[in-house]
Design a protein around this nucleic acid. Structure first.
Length: 425
RNA sequence: GUGAUCGUAGCUCAGUUGGUUAGAGCGCCUGUCUGUGGCACAGGAGGUCGGGGGUUCAAUUCCCCUCGGUCACCCCA
């Protein structure tokens, strides 16, 4: 697309958030912030880059850290990485600051993964998420999932499926991995070639495979649900009961293992049913009872989710929900004299809580009125020679035929505008 | 990383079986309609047809490479 040698564009998989989309973007973040803070979560912001070690705890063998991480050495040769996800950094912050528990935080911001972009996937993408650290009460699992549900509901998404699974505790995983490993080994020849490599390193991730050869094997595989320890089963049952009590529909997906190593007990995923693209997971999360200890903190349980903002908006588009908020300017000041009235009036309108804009460059009245109309302002204030001489302002209602146009003294124009806009101050 | 597909004005696209000054709609600017937008009309600005190389008397149109978009695999938000 470049027309000259020195022309640039956004790097692969990144994009500009342009003015025509930014209001909706801000609005969706606000919806999320409200849901989270209403539930007692507070905002946390962590750096966009961190010591690589923070993220390798996610799992050395995972794609996210193994092949998708933006890594670099800073000028002092320290190994750094652009954050590929949110949970590890929040846990690092917890381990570093040792706040009192329960620690309930929410976050939003950009994340980075070096991948080939496609529908719903970018190299710089944005998530918001929450983490609730300090307890392994299963009711917290329910609360976290319910808040994810709440966000989806608040943006008007209906066609959604909640998948839930339990990865159990360490005992569960040991027993299960043994059984699964034995099973996979006995069927290794039936597995897809790519998936065979995972049998020894990440047997549970074989379950995640979408390759048909593998899937026909794994549907017969032992299910983790049958291996849950008594404790893990009790936890999972309480979570299921809680979701049912809150009338949040879900289905149990025993093959839901998710791509990060740190999960224990509850894992879950919200998938949009309205999207026909391949990336339909809008939100994913789970419990990570060992992660903080891994990062050098005190053994502390936690659970959270991350929600992809681009995907959430894509799902909204597919359901034609959450339209962009409308016009931004209430008043457009048209000045066909020397512009000084426009200068003074916009300034004082803004001081009085009215959003106002104007044209510059001494354009013709027609041109200024066109701008006023396009701005979607309710009101145009018109000042010409006549108005200047008589110290008046013509107030033209751009969307209200009945009122049409009235002329008021310059001294009362602010009050008049406020009245017409219904801003009783 | 692999595969498919696409790349002509700001946007959406047409077009040239290779051949004079490359088109439309929308948008933008100016004007007409007795200082006033949304309608209509008139005019205008804006493109070396993603970039580089090759074939040819001649390429935007053919070939190669490259860059980028889109979609899919892998994996994930």
């Amino acid at each position: 697309m470049s027309k000259k040698a020195n022309t640039f564009q956004t790097p692969i998989g990144t994009r500009d958030l342009l003015p025509e989309h930014s209001a909706r973007w801000e609005a969706v973040i606000e919806v999320f912030s409200n849901v989270a803070s209403r539930a007692g979560f507070s905002l946390i912001d962590t750096p966009i880059f961190e010591d690589v070690g923070v993220f390798t705890r996610i799992g050395e063998g995972t794609d996210v850290v193994g092949k998708e991480m933006y890594e670099f050495l800073d000028r002092s040769e320290r190994p750094m990485a652009l954050r590929p996800e949110g949970t590890a950094a929040v846990c690092r912050a917890f381990a570093q600051h040792r706040p009192p528990v329960p620690w309930k935080v929410y976050y939003r911001g950009p994340y980075f993964r070096y991948e080939a972009p496609q529908a719903g996937r970018f190299r710089q993408f944005h998530q918001f998420g929450i983490e609730s650290i300090g307890s392994d009460d299963p009711d917290i699992d329910v609360e976290v999932i319910a808040l994810g549900w709440k966000v989806l509901e608040a943006v008007g998404i209906n066609q959604i499926e909640l998948l839930v699974n339990s990865m159990g505790d360490q005992e569960t995983r040991n027993n299960y991995q043994e059984a699964l490993n034995a099973f996979l080994k006995s069927h290794v020849n039936d597995l897809d070639e790519e998936d065979r490599k995972k049998v020894d390193t990440h047997p549970m991730r074989v379950l995640d495979s979408k390759r048909s050869a593998t899937q026909s094997v794994t549907k017969e595989a032992p299910r983790i649900n049958d291996f849950l320890s008594a404790e893990a089963e009790a936890h999972f049952e309480r979570v299921r009961d809680g979701l049912t009590a809150l009338k949040i529909p879900f289905s149990i997906e025993p093959r839901l293992v998710r791509g990060l190593d740190y999960y224990t007990h509850t894992t879950f995923e919200f998938q949009s049913l309205a999207l026909d693209s391949a990336q339909s997971t809008v939100c994913g999360g789970g419990r990570y009872n060992g992660l903080i200890e891994e990062l050098g903190g005190p053994a502390t349980p936690g659970i959270g989710f991350g929600m992809g903002i681009e995907r959430l908006l894509l799902a909204c588009d597919a359901e034609e929900s959450f339209p962009a908020p409308g016009s931004r300017v209430q008043v457009w000041v048209v000045d066909v004299t020397d512009g000084s009235s426009a200068r003074d009036l916009t300034h004082s309108l803004r001081d009085h809580g009215v959003t106002a804009d104007r044209s510059f460059d001494q354009r013709s009245m027609r041109s200024q009125m066109r701008s006023a109309n396009r701005s979607e302002a309710e009101i145009a204030l018109i000042i010409g020679e006549e108005e200047v001489n008589e110290e008046t302002v013509a107030i033209r209602m751009l969307r209200d035929e009945e009122i049409g146009q009235i002329v008021v003294p310059r001294s009362s124009v602010i009050a008049e505008v406020q009245r017409l806009l219904g801003l009783e101050l």
